[in-house]
Design a protein around this nucleic acid. Structure first.
Lengths: 154, 154
DNA sequence: CGGGTATCGTCAGTGCACCAACGAATTCGA
DNA sequence: TCGAATTCGTTGGTGCACTGACGATACCCG
């Protein structure tokens, strides 16, 4: 009987946080467009003409996942996808008119949802919250890229 | 051009945090047993004989998801699943010998991984980190099950 | 110019996570 | 006591997320 207290495990907390967010998103923002889909759409609004891989990089999705998300956004008529005439390997992505409208609408709702989500924290705590999570996530992502050999599997 | 800064969106940060954790887990803990699987195993080590639904509740998984996780743990011979003679709807779950061994091994590695994961934060910040995330997640979960009389937790 | 290498997107496979609907077992109520 | 409601686990559907392998395209260098 040497069970562990999961509330001191950041991974477990991260998962629970994300689940909680997922539910709130569904209730307050959209049942059709998901949070990752909005993130991608947002990236394309900021930088129309991105290719898939770069768009994925902007929001933190790998090539397989971004392909699926784009395909769903395309099916809904929110983004256009055309082959790059300069480089036949790429597809250039941009929001459609409908995509822009949807983005505007969801931006408002998302802001409202974030307020509710973060309501338990004071303004100072919210700043802290962003800062801490960002630092941990950035550092962990940094462990990925460096040419340094990571821990050998024991 | 009214794109939003995703680094101020808790949902986006939560997703990135979880991805970062996923990668580190794979590198430092196990490539076979996932973090949710460990969470379930841990719950069964703490309370052997839980039924599926309750086990899911302990770690924050719904009935469908816990069923899949249990099935994978069972396939690996880490948990036993027997029909409850008192109530034929339930399965009672408990770790096998192998399951206990695996749990012990992963507990050590998980602790090491958590240290690395949280290394960017000072001790005080780590406390803050847990507290803030827990409060946000708890509150959001509370929005789901409005004011329920919490019954005997033991 | 041409062959090796790198990059882009796709596909297949695994796993987590939700919902809705269903059958089987149990419990509740008239 | 017997039918209705509830509960447990399963199934099917959708969506996110990663890895590894693959074909097509582009690039680099000899």
């Amino acid at each position: 009987m040497a069970a562990v207290d999961l509330t001191t495990h950041p991974g477990h907390l991260a998962r629970r946080l994300q689940q909680a967010h997922y539910l709130l998103w569904n209730a307050m923002v959209s049942e059709e467009i998901t949070s990752p889909q909005f993130a991608v759409l947002n990236a394309l609004v900021a930088e129309p003409g991105l290719d898939q891989r770069t768009a994925g990089e902007r929001v933190g999705l790998d090539r397989s996942t971004i392909a699926e998300v784009i395909s769903r956004l395309g099916r809904r008529g929110l983004v256009d996808k055309v082959r790059d005439p300069q480089d036949g390997r790429r597809f250039l992505l941009r929001p459609t008119e409908e995509g822009l409208r949807t983005h505007r609408k969801l931006t408002v709702r998302t802001a409202r949802m974030n307020q509710v989500f973060l309501a338990p924290l004071s303004a100072a705590e919210q700043t802290m919250f962003f800062d801490l999570i960002r630092r941990v996530a950035d550092a962990a992502e940094g462990l990925r890229n460096p040419a340094e050999p990571l821990v050998a599997q024991g």
